[in-house]
Design a binder for these strands. Structure first.
Lengths: 138, 138
DNA sequence: CCTTGACCTGGAGCGCACTCCAAGTTCTAG
DNA sequence: CTAGAACTTGGAGTGCGCTCCAGGTCAAGG
């Protein structure tokens, strides 16, 4: 009686270079993320080389989303730890996610204000330039 | 016949601590910004202590806007250098500003996509939790 | 006079998120 | 079987943006 194998041998998975290609991360960063426990230990080939499963890829893409929205490594570590603990932590993860989304929404609002202010300044400069278009030495 | 003094003696200006208070930067960061040529050399009191003018404050606030919108120090240095060169560089500064604004707009769009995706994931989690609300050991 | 506290300078140190390296192993094409 | 590319590990190094520190100056209060 075997356990249900999530990554059966007939599905070898992707090498680290292939995953680097698909995610835009470097192989070094992928190894770093594994060391930092952002991803659980990735499966290995018989020769001890990493073989990433489709599930690994999905998780990596989620991590990248967290990263691009400004979550620090430590925050992703907390989330990853909860995830590793299973369904019992769904509520906690939901809380983290909501906090992060609210944070993000606030940041986006601030950025939009800044965008408007930059736009105004640009318009002001354009006005200056059309009146006195540079040191015109013609 | 005196030069038009931009910071006359009867307007002593703000101390570094006061500027730190108003901007949210630390005194150390304000000195660092001056060393990095993000701000031109600030006026000094007779005892060689910094006295910030109103114009310094306006410029600092603009720098903070650039910083909060993701411009690195090196980018702010480029902008500050052009500004120091005077009106002849208005066109160049305008170009930098437009590039930065466009960049920012693109980043905001990406963030909004991420926000939507997070929202969807949150909704999904909420569905899971309402069906099976945690390991209910009642 | 002396103390206290805010300020000055140049330079060292820090936390973050990678990024690179050396030395050794494994995979694959010919 | 062999060459060389790709991979492994632990650990050191990097760039950014501050942040802290030592040792000194200056102004005000008691």
């Amino acid at each position: 009686m075997r356990d249900a194998d999530p990554v059966p041998e007939h599905e070898p998975g992707l090498t680290i270079a292939q995953v680097a290609d698909r995610t835009g991360l470097t192989a070094d960063t992928l190894r770093y993320y594994e060391r930092a426990c952002l991803i659980e230990r990735v499966g290995r080939s018989t020769g001890n080389q990493r073989r990433y499963s489709a599930a690994d890829l999905v998780w990596l893409e989620f991590l990248l989303r967290l990263r691009e929205t400004g979550m620090p490594i430590s925050g992703m570590q907390r989330y990853a730890r909860l995830r590793a603990e299973g369904d019992a932590t769904l509520g906690e993860r939901l809380t983290l996610l909501r906090e992060h989304r609210d944070d993000l929404a606030a940041r986006i609002r601030r950025l939009r204000d800044h965008e408007d202010a930059l736009h105004d300044k640009i318009t002001h400069y354009e006005g200056l330039l059309s009146t006195q278009p540079g040191t015109d030495h013609a």
